[in-house]
């Protein structure tokens, strides 16, 4: 629209002001970071998730150390100094998953999504920015927490000379992998939240995928299908990265397993992007 033929108002020139305020992916990232850091639920979820990881790691390490002297040789053989202190990831994934869902569904339940999408009508930059901000925040905090858990555990174990260190084969991979696995769990939550748009529905779908599918998969173990399906279920594949030995257990190899898990998340995010773009807000 250039100078309109309509009677122009007194305070307005004929020419339109140039607009420097282009929407860019970087600016949308900044916006999503402001949104993330300005909600208490972000801090609470991360605090609960990381707290549970540390708490559970502490508990396992402490109990095993105190019972070590009276433990049967069989149980001693099953003990793994690398994975035991990190067992808390199982609780951590609940908190991280819920946060990932809420980052999106919180906008739908409050109506904020309409403000977000009016500001960024191309829409997809909002999804990418949300996913990025969330992934970086979760990855940094959970990776740091994984290292803390690892070292706490080794502190206990060193009293019995059963500790591992980061140079133990598989140790660094499992510690780093814990943060990566949890980040992808969260991204799965972001994707499902965008697809389903309701908090309860998306959380149910996420936990059904991560927790219920593997249990249902166990039924297949009574048939010849077990080996063909179970290793490739999302959480089974992703958790291959968190195991020191995968050969005997029939799991996928660690990195291919994780790549498949990440692939599932990418697929869900792709569906989310398609629906976000198409649907009415």
């Amino acid at each position: 629209m250039t100078a309109v033929a309509e009677p122009a108002g007194p305070a307005r020139g004929a020419a339109r002001r140039p607009h420097p305020g282009k929407v860019t992916q970087t600016r949308v990232l900044t916006s999503e970071w402001i949104k993330f850091r300005s909600l208490r639920s972000s801090y609470w979820s991360l605090l609960v998730g990381c707290g549970a990881m540390i708490g559970l790691g502490l508990l396992f390490s402490m109990v095993i150390t105190s019972k070590w002297d009276t433990m049967s040789p069989l149980r001693r053989r099953d003990f793994d100094a690398i994975t035991v202190p990190l067992r808390g990831y199982f609780l951590g994934q609940l908190a991280v998953g819920v946060l990932g869902v809420m980052v999106v569904t919180g906008e739908y339940s409050t109506g904020m999504i309409r403000a977000s999408l009016s500001a960024v009508p191309k829409r997809l930059p909002v999804l990418w920015a949300k996913a990025t901000v969330f992934a970086v925040a979760v990855w940094l905090t959970t990776t740091a927490t994984a290292f803390v858990c690892f070292f706490i555990g080794q502190g206990f174990f060193s009293g019995k000379h059963i500790q591992a260190d980061l140079s133990t084969p598989g140790a660094l991979r499992v510690v780093i992998g814990t943060g990566l696995y949890l980040t992808v769990v969260g991204l799965l939550g972001v994707g499902l939240g965008t697809v389903i748009r309701s908090t309860a529905g998306a959380i149910a779908a996420l936990f059904a995928t991560l927790l219920v599918l593997p249990v249902l998969g166990e039924v297949l173990n009574f048939t010849s299908w077990g080996d063909k399906v179970n290793p490739y279920l999302p959480s089974n594949a992703g958790q291959a990265l968190l195991a020191v030995h995968t050969e005997a257990s029939g799991q996928m190899r660690p990195w291919p397993g994780f790549a498949l898990f990440a692939g599932y998340a990418v697929a869900v995010l792709a569906v989310a992007a398609y629906l976000l773009k198409r649907r009415d807000a």
């Binding site: 916006s31 909600l39 409050t110 904020m112 403000a115």
Partner: peptide
């Protein structure tokens, strides 16, 4: 910069302060 809108249903996250709500929207366009 083209259109400012007030929609019928509130389009505001209830957990965020008014200032941060505006700051987040403002950030999208510098």
């Amino acid at each position: 910069h083209e259109v400012g809108a007030l929609l019928e249903a509130k389009a505001i996250h209830t957990g965020r302060t008014a200032y941060n709500h505006l700051l987040a929207l403002a950030a999208t366009t510098g």
